[in-house]
Design a protein around this nucleic acid. Structure first.
Lengths: 155, 155
DNA sequence: ATTGAAATGTAGGAAAC
DNA sequence: GTTTCCTACATTTCAAT
């Protein structure tokens, strides 16, 4: 795969920053055998052009009481633009919802829900998700173990 | 929810860094009305204690040619420890696999696959995923639109 | 677009409270 | 655990190439 605007140096920088954005420009410059100013300018452009969306801290979810991850597949009873939009807006407001994707296939949306435990999920399901209008079915699956979970796209 | 070791200042710091880890200690100190040294010490401890796992750059996946996200549900034909472990190891090696979770319910694993397009997914499916031993079924669903996608846990 | 060097700002550590 | 001070290091800008 080749990306139009990005050369090898850009790709190397993105590779490094996806893994560890606390690297200093000096460290990256050393690694890539370029000057600090070059790295600085490259990163500035990568941010400006939108390749780098944000720099974030990733937390240990178990330590902050988000021990349970559920994937919930939601089927709606109609697919008018209005119903879809309303569902998306409402479900996005719940803090338990980390992700909401509209999907192809036998259901409409997949949600990733993060809660402390099954009691908290139950509460979310009964008192939040299931109260939304136009839901036909919700099928939930729970994470038993996390084999791989990366945010860095191989590029 | 209360976390044992963390006070309000820690939580506020984590909240800020989850959203934007490029904030300087000075900026955080101003926001929380604390000294820079206090913030520095707090963050040092939050890293040391493992609350903050890593600082990463999040890229715009469409710009780096990862336009298609699939969730693939995999069912294996036996559930011996060895089969599970082998599947996990093999599937984790594929660069297209961003996430692999073992799940409760009617299938064994859910994978999040990132590729450039449907052709690339097809290639992954035929030449990589489907070649792994002990797979009974794979059901794939594709992301039509991304309504919400956050990495910051509300705390 | 890349560089080295100058100027500014921030991080990291020590000492005192 | 927090603050103040100090030094080292990092970022940012700029003139030159």
């Amino acid at each position: 795969m080749q990306l139009p605007e990005l050369d090898t140096i850009d790709l190397q920088i993105l590779r490094l920053l996806q893994k560890d954005a606390s690297l200093t420009n000096k460290e990256i410059a050393f690694e890539l055998e370029k000057s600090v100013a070059t790295i600085h300018e490259r990163i500035r452009k990568l941010k400006e052009q939108g390749y780098i969306k944000k720099i974030v801290a990733l937390l240990d979810r178990k330590k902050i009481n988000r021990g349970l991850i559920a994937f919930s597949q939601v089927l709606l009873n109609d697919h008018t633009a209005k119903t879809l939009k309303t569902f998306e807006e409402e479900v996005s407001r719940f803090p338990e919802v980390m992700e909401c994707f509209q999907m192809t296939g036998t259901f409409d949306f997949i949600l990733r829900i993060a809660t402390s435990d099954m009691d908290a999920y139950h509460d979310f399901y009964r008192n939040k998700l299931a109260t939304l209008p136009n839901i036909t079915t919700v099928q939930s699956f729970f994470v038993l173990s996390e084999t791989k979970s990366i945010t860095a796209y191989p590029i």
